[in-house]
Structures are given as C-alpha cells and as structure tokens.
Design a protein around this nucleic acid. Structure first.
Lengths: 217, 217
DNA sequence: ATCATAATAGGGCACTTGACGTATAGCTTT
DNA sequence: AAAGCTATACGTCAAGTGCCCTATTATGAT
C-alpha cells in the first residue's frame, strides 16, 4: 500500500487528483493535502509516514520548487513527483535541481499516474513523454543560468517553421530540407525568410545561434 | 507495425534480442542486425526504412556511441535506444550527448523493451529505472568534461584558422571576417577551405556544429 | 641550407542563399 | 460571408559560398 500526499492550492484540481488516485484503492492510499508548500511541510511534521508526494509548482506562500528542496532535505525517505501543467525547461531544470524524482503533466490519465508512482519507488524517474525529451535536451546542452530565458522572448514560430528550423540547424541545405519535409525548395526558402524576420536575423548562422540559445530546437 | 534494427556484435545476445522482439509479432518487425557500428550503417544505407535502432555500446570497429552520432545525423528520422549492460554515468552521458533517445539495460524483460520502443515513438525517453536516476543525477551536477577531447581525435587547426572559425561562429561573412582580421576575403576563404578539410565538413553550419561540439570555440 | 608548413593573395565557376514580389488553397476567427 | 493567417509555390537578382587552381612570403624544423 503506497501512501500519497498532495500539494496543490486549487481545490478543484486537488479533488481531481484525489479522484485519479481513487481509481486504485488497493494500491494507493491518499493521506492528506497541503494547500501550499508551507502547509504541506507542517502537515508532514505531524505525520511523515508518506511514500510519495505529488507536488504542484505554482502555489502561494511557498511554491513546489522550494517545498521540494526542503522536503528532500528534511524527509529524505519521501519521493517527489512534480505534477503540474508547466512544461518549460526552466521549471523542469529547477525541479530536478531541487530534488524531484519525477515530472508528470496534469493531463495524464490515472493509469499513467499510478505507473509513475510505482516506477519512482523502484528507483525510476517517471516523466511524461514531452518532459523526458526536454530533460534529455537539457543534458545535451545545459542551461545557462544567465539572461534571456527569463525575459520571456516568446518568438512564436509556426510548427512548420520549427520543422524547417530544426533541419536547418542540422546543416541541411534548402533542397535537402525540402526533400525531407516533402515540400518544394521555394517553400523552404519562404519559411526561412519568415523565420529570419521573426528572429530578427539575416542569415543561417545567426538563426541557428539564436535558435539554440532560445532552445527552439 | 514498428520496424526495428539491431546493432550487436555478440551473436548469442543478438539472437536473444531477436527472440524478445519476436514476442510481439503483431507490433514489431525485426529488419536486420549490424555486427558493429560500421556494418549497421552500411546496411542502413541500403535500407533506411527503420523506425528504431537498438544499439549496443561495446562493439569492435565502431562502437555504439560513434554509430549513434552518425545515424542521428544521416538518418534523423530513426530513433535510437541504447541496449547495453553498461550503466555507468560516463557511458550514459556520452550516449545522450551522441543523440540517443533511450537507454535500456539488457536484462529488462521483453515487455519493458516493447514499452520502451512504443514510448520513444511518442516522443518519450524510455530508460531503465536505475538509468533514469543516474541521468537525473547528471542533470543535478553535470560531469566534469575532463580530458575526453584529448582522447578523441584532436583536430589541430592553426591559430589563424581558429581566429577565422571563431568569427565564423558569430555569424559574420567572409568580408566582415577579412575586415576584422585585416586580411583579404580571398584569404579568409582559403582558411575556411582548410578548416572544412580538417574538420571533414562541407559547409558553414556543419563546421559550427562540429566546432561547438569539440569545444574549439 | 633545405624542406615543410602557415599565412597571405588572387582567378574562375557553379551553385546556394537572402531579399524582393506574386499568388492560391485551406483553415480559423470574427 | 469576410478577414486574416498559414502553408504552399514560383520567379528574379545580387550577393555569398564551396571548390578548383596558382603563387609569394615568412617561419620553424631537419
């Protein structure tokens, strides 16, 4: 019987998580919920007999990242899974730094959640598919702690433009990209023009530099 | 129907992998096996209609890390899962750097293997429990990149060539670089030709990729 | 002293790329 | 239904690039 605690400020969402857990009454036991990091920790101080915490990130008073840091230090036997809607690299990175062992998005079905919980107790690191990919990318080239990811420069490229940019970064020329995406080279060039405009650059190299810095690839 | 290729030098182990795959004849189709990295790649050149490669690390002629680098570049549509007995951080790190999307230990049961293969095609990053943990730890405090560029093939560019390469990586064109270094554009071009030759590349983008990977800039 | 290498400079040719302009079909939003 | 955006496609032109060639000078090593 796996004992679960939850940290989630939104009552509705907390209810929904509890329901998901309720699908597996023979395997999981829901113990309590903190309405923020502070609350969770004070509840843990009364009763730390918990195996896994499902931790939201955005919470008032004390967020999930800070709470994770404290919990991993004070209650090292407890495993923590981030359960959030946030899937940007900065949050993923911070959560892992803080000591989270898993990172699951809130829209995953109950079964995935159960698997994640079981996985983490066997020494795994459950992650939603997209998260795993981003974590991997972080490992490939680590985040710079500095500058502009915070400045929230949301360059919104279309998905097609991202396709093109990806190929571009791998060193393919227009024709090769056209082949790969099954479109004409002329179209590739047009996409690239648009990309340059959006990124405010004027050639391939700068585009690639900017793309890698902003982690669009 | 997911198409699988395998790279594994040991015939017995290769047989055993094939058997594991054979458990799921409706979902997986085993296509071929390379007895080392080189062999795999030459087989891919004849038939690259493959979704996932299961890649051993230790192989003669060309190991799985090198092969992974080449495959991700030449056949970017193919996903790679490392399938090995090695579970030390250095190998995990190198495999991920090289572009592997998953890392599964050889003693996992057939079912786990199938799940991993399915997972990877959905954008996940399947890992055996212990591996995920170590990957996470790597993210928390990255490996020191000690001497492993010296162990690699050292491309010795001249200092002038490095000057040029540096400017090149910043997105300047030949004329601008010539200006900056007080030499003629023709000379810049010549240097760049030499750089391409030494790095074994054929255009700016690839040169920059290689330069950053080998930390020449 | 000779040889090899690096750095410099140039010519020529085919191809690629960047920056224009134009246009059409499909889809979403209003 | 109209407006707007996206993806698609084509054409032109100048500039940039990749690759071939030769050649001179300086430096360092044998």
């Amino acid at each position: 019987m796996i004992k679960i605690a939850v940290a989630e400020d939104n009552s509705l969402l907390a209810k929904s998580i509890e329901e998901k857990l309720g699908f597996f009454p023979t395997q999981l036991r829901y113990k309590f919920r903190g309405i923020n990091g502070k609350d969770l920790i004070s509840k843990l101080e009364e009763d730390s007999n918990v195996d896994v915490i499902l931790m939201d990130i955005q919470m008032p008073e004390m967020d999930g990242i800070q709470a994770t840091e404290i919990v991993t230090q004070r209650f090292p036997h407890i495993k923590i899974i981030m359960l959030t809607v946030l899937d940007d690299e900065t949050h993923i990175f911070k959560a892992i730094q803080a000591g989270a062992n898993g990172y699951i998005l809130k829209d995953e079905p109950p079964k995935k959640l159960l698997e994640g919980i079981q996985d983490i107790l066997q020494g795994g690191a459950p992650m939603s598919a997209g998260i795993a990919l981003k974590a991997m990318r972080l490992l490939r080239n680590p985040l710079e702690i500095t500058e502009d990811l915070s400045s929230e420069e949301k360059t919104n490229l279309t998905s097609r433009e991202l396709d093109v940019l990806n190929q571009l970064c791998k060193g393919f020329d227009y024709k090769q990209i056209a082949d790969f995406l099954n479109i004409s080279p002329a179209t590739v060039r047009k996409h690239i023009e648009n990309i340059y405009q959006k990124l405010q650059v004027h050639n391939k190299v700068e585009a690639i530099q900017k793309a890698t810095k902003q982690r669009l690839v």
